Amino acid sequence: MRLAIGDLQGQIAPLERLLDAAAFDAASDQLWLTGDLVNRGQDNAAVLRRVRDLGDSAVTVLGNHDFYLLAVASGAMRRGADDTLDDILNAPDREALLDWLRFRPLMHVADGFAMVHAGLLPGWSISQARLLAHEVEGALQGPHWKIFLQNLWGSQPLAWDEKLEGWDRLRVIVNAMCRMRMCSIDGEMALKHKGPIDAAPAGVLPWFAVPKRRSKTHTVVCGHWSALGYYADDGILALDTGCVWGGCLTGVWLESGARVEVKCDQTAAPSGWD
């Protein structure tokens, strides 16, 4: 059985409570995590160790805050004053944990489910998106990964074009899979909007509501959008229920659809790369 869980953001206690509540068994079950393992909470190193030590019993994709940690730790990005990464940046096993994180996938696909942190552009099929994710993984896992991170930040281009090359191409892929919440019918990302659907600017829709979205062949499991909350409909399972903001940590058994939730304490400060 596979248990999918929303954004942890450096909080180990809710994770342990949810695993207990769900009766998760690492010997027979697999944990799917939607990314953003770190930042805003205070237990970043503990979360990374816990997930890493589950081995093949855990699958996590990369989120925007995970990229932020890697960029800060590698010197590719200046650290924000309000992040909560001290424990991991000062950890004795810092480099081992960062190397483990750097080799996590951007997207995971299995048995009719596709997991990504934020979303998929409506023109991307699952097979195309997985190939694009592999391009980013190759850059992040290769010998020039620090140069890649130095060129990652920014919001342009806002739309996909198969002719894109170099850093622009990789940046669009990462922004879609790790930052996007809404886009136009033509697939132009509206990266500034973080609020609820009914407060969105004119002309944009949730990425999963765009007509003729090509990824509907699978159920896309994602997090990232705490203002959306739990959302399960029409090929989408969104699981960021704002744990770090004092909401809940939500898990769903993918095979049965059964939901498990635990209450969280608010620990967050605004930080990182959204």
Results as ranks from 00 to 15, higher is better:
Arg2Gln: 12
Ala4Leu: 11
Ile5Ala: 08
Gln9Ile: 12
Gly10Trp: 01
Gln11Gly: 06
Arg17Ser: 13
Leu18Ala: 08
Leu19Trp: 12
Ala21Leu: 13
Ala22Leu: 08
Asp25Ala: 11
Trp32Phe: 14
Leu37Gln: 00
Asp56Thr: 14
Asp56Asn: 11
Thr60Met: 09
His65Asp: 02
Leu69Arg: 00
Ala71Gln: 02
Val72Pro: 03
Ala73Ile: 12
Gly75Lys: 06
Met77Leu: 15
Leu98Asp: 09
Phe103Lys: 15
Leu106Phe: 02
Val109Gly: 02
Asp111Val: 05
Gly112Cys: 04
Leu120Thr: 14
Arg130Gly: 09
His134Tyr: 14
His134Gly: 15
Ala139Tyr: 00
Gln141Met: 08
Gly142Ala: 02
Gly142Val: 07
Gly142Phe: 01
Leu152Trp: 01
Pro157Thr: 07
Arg171Phe: 07
Ile173Gln: 10
Asn175Lys: 09
Cys178Lys: 05
Ile185Gly: 04
Met189Ile: 13
Ala190Gly: 12
His193Cys: 08
Ile197Phe: 03
Pro201Val: 15
Val204Pro: 04
Pro206Cys: 11
Ala209Gln: 14
His218Met: 10
Cys222Thr: 09
His224Phe: 00
Leu237Met: 13
Asp240Ala: 13
Thr241Arg: 02
Val244Pro: 00
Leu254Phe: 05
Glu255His: 08
Ser256Trp: 01
Ala258Lys: 13
Val262Gln: 03
Ala269Tyr: 06
Ser271Tyr: 06
Ser271Trp: 05
Ser271Arg: 13
